[in-house]
Every structure is written in C-alpha cells, then in structure tokens.
Write a protein that binds this DNA or RNA. Structure first.
Length: 575
RNA sequence: CGGGGUGUAGCGCAGCCUGGUUUAGCGCACCUGCCUUGGGAGCAGGGGGCCGGAGGUUCAAAUCCUCUCACCCCGACCA
C-alpha cells in the first residue's frame, strides 16, 4: 500500500474525548473514529488489526475442530422468552420492534439462537461433541461505555458454543479451548494470564478469564509469584492461617461494657474513639439473600466479598438490607448492628475467629459494646471464607505472598451446563436411547478489545509498537528523498520485492519532510522501518530500524530484504 | 442510574466571572504561490463559525437565567 493513496488520517494532537492511552493512540493513528458513545467507525488501518486478530482466532478455532457459522444479529423475542431471559436481561438488551410491532432484540450474546439452530438437526449423542463459533457484531447497551473499543456498546466478538453428551466430554473440550485460547493470545503477541473466575449463578464448577496484563486494566487479578495460582478478585481466596492465631488481643476475657458512641457508625470513627485499630472491631453487615435476611460478620479492617457470600448461601441475588429490614432483624439503628440478639441467620468470615475482647455494635442507636467475647456473650458463629483478599495475603495453594495485578479481560471460557438446552428443550438420545439434554460450554473473545489491549500493552511515548502477529503492516518504507530519482527507484524496487514476497508493506511515498514521516511511522507502530535517504545516494545503504528499541542497522537493499524476512519469521514463530 | 465536568472553524483551545471596542480570536490542519527535504520547516496571501439546541432577561447575549441534547470522567456490569 502506498501511503499517498491510503486513507490513514493521523493526528498530531491528543483527542479530547480519550483518556486512556490505547484509546488516544487508536484515534491518533487513524484507526477509529467515534460515532456515538460506545459506537465507532473502523478506518482501514484499524480494520487491518481487527482482521489480523480475527484471522488468528479463526485459524486456531478451526484447528480445535470448531465450525464457523454466522448467526443473525437481530433475534426474535420468542427465543428469549423460551430461555427465560427476555424478562431477566435488563436494560443492557437493546429491544426493538419490527413494522408489525413484533419484539426483537439486537443480540448481546447468542445462546438462544445457537440452541434453536442445533435443536433443529441434532438427534443423537453420536453427533456430539459439536462446537460452533462465529465472529460477529454484538450490541450491549452498557451502562458506561469507555475507552474506545475496550468497552464499546457495539463490538465484534468471537463466540463459540459447544454441546456434549456427558460431563467428561465437556471437560475434555474445555481443556482444548483453554489451550486454543492460550495459543490465540500468544500468537497475538500478548502478555496474558488465564485467571480462575467465579462461575456465578449459572453454575458449572470452573471458569477462566483470559486477562492481558496492563497497569491500566479495569480488573484486579490476584496471582501467586511462586505457584501458578491466579484468580480474579471475586474468586480469589487466601490461606486462613494468618488470622486464626493472631487475633486474640489478650488472653483474659474482660468485662463487657456498653459505651455511648454518638453518631459513630463508620468503623474508622469507632476505632478512633476507642483508641484501637479497626482490626479489633467486628463489622456486622446485614444482607438480604433471595428475600431472606442474613448477617455477615467480618473483622473491621477487612472487606466482604458479596460473591462469596452469595455462593455460600446458594442465593440467586443478594443486596444490602434496607433500613427497615435492619431494624427488624437487629432491633437497632443502621450503623450500630452487632451479633448479639439477632433474629436472622449469622455467618462469619474466618478473620474473626479467635478474636477476644472485641468491639461490636449494640443493636441500639449510638451504642457499641466493648470487650465482647464468643460463647460468653453470643454463640460462636459458623466460619467460612467471605473476605476480599488483600495484597500480601498467603496463597491458598503454596502460602507464598499473593500479588495484585491489573488486567484487561479479553476472553472467557465457561461451562454452561444444561440451562439453555433444558429451557429450550434441546434433547438428544443417549447411548441407552433415553432422551437427555446436552451439556453446553461457551467461549468468548472480544476481538476489538484484544486489538486494543495489544496497543495498551505495547506502546511508548512516540506511539504504538505493534506485535508482529497483529500489526496492520509488517514493514514501512520511508522514502526520505522524493526529489531524488535514485531514491525513488530504490524505494519502489524494495516495495515491489516485498509485495511479491507476500509481505505486508506500507510505502510512505508522500512528498513530505523526513521529520513528518518519522513521527507518523513511530505513531502508527509498524514494527520494521526501512529508511531510504541520503545514505543511499552516498553509499547505497538503507537503514533498518526496529520500532521497539529504535535499533538501527545500515544495510544494502538485498541485505535489508533478507533481514526483514528473518525478523518476521522469527517474531511469528516465536509467538 | 447517581456524582463531577465539557460543548466556540476539521482538531486543540482562549474569550464567558464583570453583557457593548469582537466584523468572535489563537495554534495546528486546509487552499494558492515561493522556498525547503534526516525528527511534525519558513515567508506571503486565502477560505472556513447561526459560539450544541430551544426559550427567556435586556436597547444589546458566546457571555446572564430556565429547559433540553450530546459527549467525557468517577462508581455497580461485561468480551
């Protein structure tokens, strides 16, 4: 491609609309333009990256034995009513009506459609396992679209759905997908981690998210530097031993006292009032789990993980209790709840086990108890893991100290179970000739997000540094002397030779001063730059510059071609 | 949806508080000509705006008031 004929509008100034670095760079490098919140145009240069990511995804999915399909973006409401999600999927589902006032939606995901497809034709366990995937535009009316393609409302996603006759087949396939995803993100040149995640209400024992590591990532992931344990913050647990012994603030049980603590409900305020640190308090949090109030106890300096609480209770939904419920359950005011005399179920985090002479709310406005103790003052509760782990906690597997990292979730693999096959009545006959619902898995990759994550992870002050696997062009030729016939001839020759060798090459033939071309080339992040300028006139050499480290080698034209091929081959095989 | 902010030329901004010396300005970009070619050159000339929209206050509104729309940032969702 010749730059002079290409549509690649680069920007010198930082766009106001963007905050995050990869978003800024994508706009400046002429890759995307915004149409509306979370909705973007993909320009030729940006589309090339998307296509490269798609190509890798396609190749690896095909290699795994999955089959590509293309399902409709617009889906009829009946299918969603069958699965039960028409009611439950909130505002994120973009609902539309056709001319006859029939309900449709723009698909945010395709479980319904895929099950509908498969149930038409699959009859026997012999036809399974089956994995169907597509690369397609989704729409989710996100509460807050952000950061360009990172969290758009309209976005391109690869989604795959697998069907299995039994658990072991699903498990086997899950592992294949795990390996496939690992290959995909490796080939994209990304530094990523598979992360254990909570499987939520849908069920299924394991689920993994694939996170690209980046300081600006929106998610926190918890990882052990010693063993391979990596989980997201919701799922992460830590070894409990840290608490069990250390908690007692004195072996002797002191007399419990009721103390006036006017208007003090925040843990920090109460602790300051008593001249103690928050870890000598027990927080009593009242939740409502599927209409059932429940009290959760946790040490004052710790935070409760609502997902863990929800899972422990096997609840579909949990919310913080309203003022009324709190009054009913505790008999006291919000902010002064304590475990003594509660009329609801009580569960406790391990962090409070072994505590002595601790401070709790008195279930009475403006009062706390100090020197409270288990057994004597109230029954010792059941312990479980309810806390959000903190950095420096011990790894649950090997007891090394856990570290926090930031990540961008680019993919997820998930055991779906039979929810959709049951609700939508997808049945096959098993070996015994008995009707049964296939077990499903689903596997997603955000294509645009992956592309942007590659930029988020690979850039410097001058611009993007594309990994070879996803770069729009592998080489850019900078003609630094468009007035010189000799230079023009050499540049053209090099350009055509590289094209013939099936190399993705951009030739900057514009009649601009060199500085301009250097800046553009750095900004748009092509990994290999070839500069043809005055050195070619003087001694027939060109400069080959590696974008990543700006390393320059001076070579003849033919040496340059050879080196280009070897660099590309090496980088691609490396990944 | 709550909290905070921004809308003035293609992009980035100033002007607004304290209404009128503004025919609304600056930098970049754009057009013409000359000149220039190794890190976003220079000179000269030029084009481009209902100051987000609607209503109001006023002799007079980019500027004050009300409403509205759009976008961005911070929180709960997700690929």
């Amino acid at each position: 491609m010749k730059f002079s004929q290409y549509y690649l509008p680069t920007l010198k100034e930082e766009p106001k609309e963007a905050e995050n670095i990869s978003h800024k760079l994508m706009i400046r490098a002429g890759m995307i333009r915004k149409v509306a919140a979370g909705i973007y145009d993909l320009l030729p240069y940006g589309l090339r990256v998307i296509r490269k990511v798609e190509a890798i995804v396609r190749e690896e999915m095909n290699r795994s034995g999955a089959h590509e399909v293309l399902l409709p973006a617009i889906q009829p409401a009946e299918l969603w009513e069958e699965s039960g999600r028409w009611k439950f999927y909130g505002k994120e589902l973009l609902r539309i009506k056709d001319r006859s006032n029939r309900d449709f939606c723009f698909g945010p995901t395709h479980e319904e459609v895929i099950v509908d497809l498969v149930r038409k034709d699959i009859r026997s366990y012999k036809e399974l396992p089956l994995n169907l995937y597509q690369i397609q535009t989704k729409f989710r009316d996100e509460i807050r679209p952000r950061f360009g393609l990172m969290r758009g409302r309209e976005f391109i996603m690869k989604d795959a759905y697998s069907f299995h006759a039994d658990e072991s087949s699903l498990h086997e396939h899950y592992e294949i997908m795990h390996a496939t995803y690992t290959r995909i993100f490796t080939r994209c040149g990304l530094n990523f981690r598979p992360v254990e995640a909570d499987s939520g209400a849908i069920g299924g024992d394991v689920t993994h998210e694939f996170h690209v590591l980046a300081d600006t990532g929106e998610d926190t992931i918890v990882t052990c530097p010693t063993c391979n344990y990596t989980a997201n913050l919701e799922k992460a647990t830590s070894s409990q031993e840290k608490f069990v012994q250390k908690n007692s603030t004195g072996t002797e049980e002191k007399q419990r006292e009721e103390v006036l603590t006017t208007n003090l409900h925040a843990v920090e305020d109460v602790a300051r009032f008593f001249h103690v640190t928050p870890n000598e308090l027990i927080k009593t949090l009242i939740y409502v789990a599927d209409n059932e109030p429940v009290a959760a106890l946790i040490r004052g300096d710790q935070n409760l993980n609502e997902v863990k609480l929800k899972n422990y209770l096997c609840a579909n939904e949990i919310t913080m209790a309203s003022e009324e419920v709190i009054k009913k359950v505790t008999g006291g005011q919000v902010g002064f709840s304590g475990p003594i005399g509660l009329t609801c179920k009580v569960i406790a985090d391990y962090s409070i086990s072994g505590m002595k002479n601790f401070i709790i709310g008195a279930n009475k406005a403006d009062y706390h108890f100090k020197n409270t103790n288990f057994t004597r003052d109230f029954q010792e509760p059941t312990y479980t893991d309810l806390r959000i782990v903190t950095e420096g906690d011990k790894c649950p597997k090997c007891s090394a100290l856990l570290m926090f990292k930031r990540g961008i979730e680019v993919g997820q693999i998930f055991k779906l179970g039979t929810k959709y096959s049951k609700n939508m009545n997808l049945t096959i006959l098993d070996k015994q000739g008995k009707p049964t619902h296939p077990i499903m898995g689903c596997y997603g990759i955000g294509i645009g997000r992956t592309a942007q994550a590659a930029i988020e992870q690979n850039h410097d002050n001058d611009g993007i540094i594309f990994p070879m696997g996803v770069t729009p062009f592998e080489v850019i030729i900078l003609n630094l002397g468009t007035q010189e016939e000799k230079i023009n001839r050499a540049a053209e020759e090099l350009y055509h030779k590289l094209l013939q060798a099936k190399c993705d090459v951009l030739y900057d033939d514009r009649e601009l001063r060199p500085g301009f071309k250097f800046k553009d080339a750095d900004l748009i992040g092509i990994p290999i730059h070839i500069r043809i300028g005055k050195k070619y006139i003087e001694n027939n050499t060109v400069e080959l510059v590696i974008r990543k480290d700006k390393h320059i080698s001076e070579l003849s034209l033919s040496e340059a071609i050879e080196k280009i091929h070897s660099i590309i081959a090496k980088e691609l095989s490396h990944a």
